[in-house]
């Protein structure tokens, strides 16, 4: 179980709160969507779950314990811009094998060609790079995946292909996932439940878990208003 308890974040010690009182629980193998317009802190929330940032308030717990500070993080993030998440001076084989040696079957299912691994990042397209970034994040130590607009810059066919491979991997290995996206149709296709953030004026505080209101998940705030704006 990956849990965020009363999570809050702001940049600096006196900046405005980006969000506060965020609660979420993701079980093993469960795929949860996070939906909302840009600028609400969805990406920052993903970074908190993945341990990139330390929360200003609240805690992130994995199986009841804090995330490990050193070593391989069991919560792995895949970002929107793969060209910014790989080392431009490394050949991609080195990038891919940085954390573990991905099995052939995974590379095949993601459609990664062996020839790409001897190239540098600028010699591949965005879709090809993102496949490598995904394979890199799905190591045996990964229990949860945070996919932040993972396929927003890809065409529909590539998007469907990558997600099918990722969903198969998650199902087979009991890996849970948080899918951050502004594409409702994609979230409906992938997720068992979707947490929707408020509209343009609602802010991150006015968000609600559409399917799990009773579970006490989602963001604290005016739930009725958020449910109205999300409908």
């Amino acid at each position: 179980m990956l849990e965020a308890i009363d999570l809050g974040y702001r940049f600096g010690s006196s900046g405005p709160w980006l969000f506060q009182g965020m609660n979420i629980r993701i079980g093993p193998g469960e795929v949860v969507g996070l939906f909302g317009p840009s600028g609400l802190g969805k990406t920052t929330f993903g970074h908190l779950l993945g341990g990139y940032l330390a929360p200003a308030q609240g805690r992130v717990l994995l199986g009841g314990a804090a995330l490990p500070v050193r070593g391989y993080c069991p919560v792995q993030c895949v970002h929107q811009h793969p060209e910014l998440s790989v080392n431009p001076r490394w050949r991609l084989g080195r990038t891919l094998r940085e954390a573990y040696d991905p099995p052939e079957a995974l590379l095949d299912s993601l459609g990664i060609a062996a020839a790409w691994l001897s190239r540098y990042p600028h010699e591949l397209s965005g879709g090809e790079l993102q496949r490598i970034a995904v394979a890199r994040a799905l190591g045996p130590g990964t229990r949860y995946l945070v996919a932040d607009e993972m396929t927003a810059m890809l065409d529909a066919i590539t998007q469907a292909h990558i997600w099918r491979a990722v969903m198969d991997h998650c199902r087979e290995n009991g890996v849970g996932a948080l899918v951050i996206s502004h594409d409702e149709a994609l979230l409906a296709r992938l997720c068992s439940r979707v947490i929707a953030c408020g509209g343009v004026t609602g802010g991150m505080s006015a968000a609600v878990d559409l399917a799990g209101m009773e579970s006490g998940e989602g963001f604290a705030g005016d739930r009725a208003q958020a449910a109205g704006s999300a409908a």
Partner: peptide, 10 residues
């Protein structure tokens, strides 16, 4: 057909 609204075919 690859759109998530349709078949999500890949």
């Amino acid at each position: 057909m690859a759109l998530p609204e349709n078949e999500f075919a890949a």
